[in-house]
Amino acid sequence: MSAYRVTEHKRRWIVLALITIVIACLLSPWASPHPDGLERVAEDHGFLDKGTAVNELAVIPDYEVAGIPWSVVSIGLAGGIGIVIMVGVLFGVTRSLTRSGGDRIERRTNGLEGIDRT
């Protein structure tokens, strides 16, 4: 039986990074403006107007950076900012997970390796 794992070819990850930037910054302004599945259902069944937004402090509501007259630029910028935030947040969270639990897992894996080698 064959196993699969994530690729170690650096080039493929670089391509994914480029695709991500292109989608977030260049493609995002051309997304369909139509309501999505849930909004469609809410509209058809008359509860769309029940939707509110508790978070009034949102910096970039609806993916448009305020104060920019061209929506292509303001949405593209919102996408660019978003991918930077995502990388930052996930890098921080996952790194702190590898660090805080590091010692414990290190010992456990070493133990297992010891058994494997004998």
Binding site: M86, V87, F91
Partner: peptide, 19 residues
């Protein structure tokens, strides 16, 4: 895997913008 996970997360965010 940390940087790869962060990158895939950014891809998910970007792809979710495209309706």
């Amino acid at each position: 895997r940390v940087p790869l996970i962060a990158l895939v997360g950014a891809f998910v965010f970007a792809a979710q913008m495209i309706n």
